[in-house]
Amino acid sequence: MSWRRWCKPGHPAQLVLGLSIWGIWFIAMYAGLSVVCQFVAPAPQDGAANWLNYALFGLTLIVITLLLLLAWRGWRYCQSVQHDNRPQRFVGYVSTVLYLMAALATLAGALPVLVLPPCI
């Protein structure tokens, strides 16, 4: 099994990669929040402006950047495939949109860290 093949934009694994990244981000956010709140919770009086929220939002920005890069790569691949009905083009198109959707879902999910304190 060649992992390089899996990473190519037209490979069907791309259909689930973007949302899998979203899923890992989701788990990291929820689990990270729970563990940190249990052991080193930021002071409640800091409100939303505390190191934990900054860290969670920083992680979010990294994930969004990665997803947008993957979407851009997928879009370029779609442009390069000649025949309109090729399944690879279909996979490329669908996965590109799914990367964008995953990026949007990541951004939407992280917006509360800008306004809410984490451990209350």
């Binding site: 989701f26 956010m29 929820y30 929040l33 729970s34 709140c37 929220n53 959707m101 879902a105 939407a108 999910g109 917006l111 509360p112 860290v113 809410l116 304190p117 984490p118 451990c119 209350i120």
Partner: peptide, 18 residues
């Protein structure tokens, strides 16, 4: 459950409508 976690899942719950 902490507010932030609730907001987090609230957003995800609304997202599934998309």
């Amino acid at each position: 459950i902490p507010q932030l976690a609730q907001a987090f899942f609230s957003v995800a719950s609304m997202l599934v409508a998309v």
